[in-house]
Simulated assay, not measured.
Amino acid sequence: MGRRTHIVVSLLSPDWREDMPAAAALGRRAVRAALKGAALEGAALAGLASGDAPIELSLVLADDGLVHRLNRQYRGIDRPTNVLSFGSLSAEPAAPADMPVMLGDVVLARETVIAEAAMQGKALADHFSHLVVHGVLHLLGYDHEHAGEAEMMEALEVSVLAKLGIANPYSMEVDPGSPAHV
Rank of each mutant, 00 (worst) to 15 (best):
D15V: 01
W16P: 00
W16F: 02
E18G: 02
A22D: 15
A22R: 09
A23K: 01
G27D: 01
G27E: 00
R29T: 13
R32W: 01
A33L: 02
A34C: 02
A34G: 01
G37S: 06
A38H: 04
A39H: 10
A39S: 13
A43I: 06
A44D: 12
L45Q: 10
L45A: 08
G47M: 06
L48A: 06
A49V: 10
A49M: 08
S50L: 12
G51F: 07
G51P: 03
D52R: 13
A53E: 10
I55V: 15
E56P: 02
L57F: 11
L59D: 01
L59K: 00
D64H: 09
G65A: 15
G65E: 14
L66K: 11
V67R: 03
V67Q: 06
R69A: 14
L70A: 08
R75N: 15
I77A: 11
D78K: 07
N82D: 09
L84Q: 03
L84Y: 03
S85R: 08
S85W: 00
S88M: 13
L89A: 09
S90Q: 04
E92H: 13
A95F: 07
P96Y: 08
M99A: 14
M99S: 12
V101H: 07
L103F: 10
L103A: 10
V106H: 08
V107H: 09
L108N: 09
L108D: 06
A109G: 14
R110W: 07
V113Y: 01
I114K: 13
